[in-house]
């Protein structure tokens, strides 16, 4: 579903990502674990064409996204959900409008069906009663959950999570991790989860890639990496 080959990204003289390659299979949860400033967010933004690579290719559904025109890229993006670190809710719209906005140009659904879909998506993240609230009235965890509902309302085949648990208390972090797993099971989506939170990685990952200084230094399951004696890998798990 996703294939990145020899990806390199540089800004001015600074190289952020060096020769990154990865692939993602259907139904798989891939966690990219790395410290702040290791290039995680740049990588995930490159995956949806927000940042252009200096070298290499990004294939989504077997198409190189940087060879596509604006309209084709937008069509492809509809199959990909993206949950931002800050949730990035549209702050001039209510929760309901935030979700409805994603269905704005959908011709296959009637207005009634759109309303019902919004209601059921919000119910699935436990926020049906917050439908008419503004994003500013919600807590950080609630905003993340609305962001997740907004991401999933278009039934994406791939979901990208940018630091889904950052800034949340341990209880809410666990709730979000649980939701990520539920999404994987319920919708059979493939996910890439960018995080520095080991607990989140532990509970959500089928496979983990460790990113350090713009390059992957290790790959494996949580158990394998956690038991590793490699001095470069150990600091990520002994926090």
């Amino acid at each position: 579903m996703v294939k990145i080959e020899h990806l390199k990204i540089s800004f001015a003289d600074k190289t952020i990502l060096k020769d990154i390659s990865l692939s993602l299979k259907k139904g798989e949860n891939l966690v990219i674990l790395g410290k702040s400033g290791s290039g995680k967010s740049v990588l995930i933004k490159c995956l949806v064409g927000l940042i252009a690579p200096t070298e290499g290719s990004v294939m989504l559904f077997e198409k190189n996204i940087f060879d596509l025109g604006e309209d084709d890229l937008n069509l492809l993006r509809k199959k990909v959900g993206f949950l931002f670190q800050s949730a990035a809710l549209y702050d001039s719209m209510t929760v309901r409008e935030n979700l409805e906005f994603q269905l704005r140009y959908s011709k296959s659904l009637s207005e009634f069906e759109k309303g019902e879909l919004v209601r059921s998506m919000l119910a699935s993240v436990g926020l049906e009663e917050s439908m008419d609230k503004m994003p500013s009235e919600l807590s950080g965890g609630m905003q993340k959950r609305v962001g997740l509902a907004r991401t999933l309302i278009t039934s994406p085949e791939i979901v990208l999570y940018d630091e889904p648990t950052t800034g949340l208390d341990p209880f809410t972090s666990r709730e979000i991790s649980k939701l990520i797993l539920e999404v994987q099971k319920k919708y059979n989506t493939a996910s890439i989860i960018i995080t520095h939170d080991v607990e989140c990685a532990k509970s959500t990952a089928n496979r983990i890639l460790i990113l350090k200084n713009g390059a992957f230094i290790a790959e494996g399951s949580f158990k394998e990496l956690n038991e590793s004696t490699d001095k470069e890998i150990q600091p990520f798990f002994n926090q």
């Binding site: 949806v48 937008n74 993006r77 990035a88």
Partner: peptide, 9 residues
């Protein structure tokens, strides 16, 4: 960016 990645223009 959120609008952009959701395929809106």
């Amino acid at each position: 960016e959120a609008m952009e990645v959701s395929g809106m223009n």
